[in-house]
Amino acid sequence: MTAEELQADPYAIVAVASSAGGINGLVKLLGGFDAALPVPVLVVQHLDPRHRTVLAEILDRRTPLSVKLAETGETARPGTVYLAPPDRHLLVDSGGVLSLSSSELVHFLRPSADLLFESVAGAYGPQAIACVLTGTGTDGAMGVDAVRSRGGTVIAQDPETAEFRGMPAAAVGTGSVDYVLPLDEIAAVISGLVETKRRS
C-alpha cells in the first residue's frame, strides 16, 4: 500500500486517556460527539482498582454515545465508547477486537494509556486518533510517540486549561502532538477530522 493510499484511508478509531479531573473532561468531550460518530472510542481513565466503577453508567447518561465497560473478545463498534475496567489494561487488534490484560503495571498504572495507545498505533497506524486529557503524571506520553510514528494523529488538551496539567503537558513535551486545544474544542475537531477524511 502506498503512502497516498494509507493517507486516504478514513480514521477508524479514537483512543482517549485521562486521569485526575478526567470524569468532567470525559463528560465534556464525549458529550460533544454526535450519536452517529462513525468510529469507536476507547478510553483509559485511571480508576481505583479496589472498587467497582459506575463511570460507564454516568457517562452513558451524559453523552449521545453508548458507553460500556470493555469486554475481552468483543468487536469495537462505531458510536460506542469502551471504557477500560479498573485494574485491567485495554488493548485492540487490527480487526477491532478488544482484549483486557492483567499484565504488570506500567508506570505503576493499570490500565495504562501508553499500552492502549501503542496497541492502537500498531493496529491502525494512520487511521488512529489519540487524545490526552487532564491528569497527573506522564501516562500517555510514550504512547502518543507510537501513534505519531505510525502516521496517526495526536490531540492534547491545552495544559493551561486542564484541571490537572501533568498528562497533557507530558504529551505536548514529546513534540508528537498535532493539536493542542481547549477541552471544549476537542470533540468538534475530532468529529471534523473523522468526517473530512471519510469524505475525501
Rank of each mutant, 00 (worst) to 15 (best):
residue 102 S to F: 04
residue 102 S to I: 13
residue 102 S to N: 13
residue 102 S to P: 00
residue 103 S to P: 00
residue 103 S to F: 04
residue 103 S to E: 15
residue 105 L to M: 08
residue 106 V to T: 14
residue 107 H to P: 00
residue 107 H to G: 00
residue 108 F to R: 10
residue 110 R to Y: 07
residue 110 R to W: 05
residue 110 R to A: 05
residue 110 R to S: 05
residue 111 P to G: 06
residue 111 P to K: 07
residue 111 P to E: 08
residue 111 P to Q: 06
residue 113 A to V: 14
residue 115 L to Q: 08
residue 115 L to A: 10
residue 116 L to M: 15
residue 116 L to P: 05
residue 117 F to H: 01
residue 117 F to W: 12
residue 117 F to Q: 07
residue 118 E to W: 00
residue 119 S to K: 11
residue 119 S to M: 10
residue 119 S to W: 03
residue 120 V to L: 05
residue 120 V to Q: 07
residue 120 V to G: 06
residue 123 A to H: 07
residue 125 G to Y: 10
residue 125 G to Q: 13
residue 127 Q to H: 02
residue 127 Q to G: 05
residue 127 Q to E: 15
residue 127 Q to C: 14
residue 128 A to H: 12
residue 128 A to D: 09
residue 128 A to V: 02
residue 129 I to F: 00
residue 130 A to F: 01
residue 131 C to I: 13
residue 133 L to R: 10
residue 134 T to I: 03
residue 135 G to K: 01
residue 135 G to M: 11
residue 136 T to W: 02
residue 136 T to S: 15
residue 137 G to V: 06
residue 137 G to W: 09
residue 141 A to Y: 05
residue 141 A to P: 07
residue 144 V to M: 09
residue 146 A to Y: 09
residue 146 A to D: 07
residue 146 A to G: 03
residue 147 V to H: 03
residue 149 S to P: 00
residue 149 S to L: 11
residue 150 R to W: 02
residue 151 G to N: 08
residue 151 G to E: 08
residue 152 G to M: 09
residue 153 T to W: 12
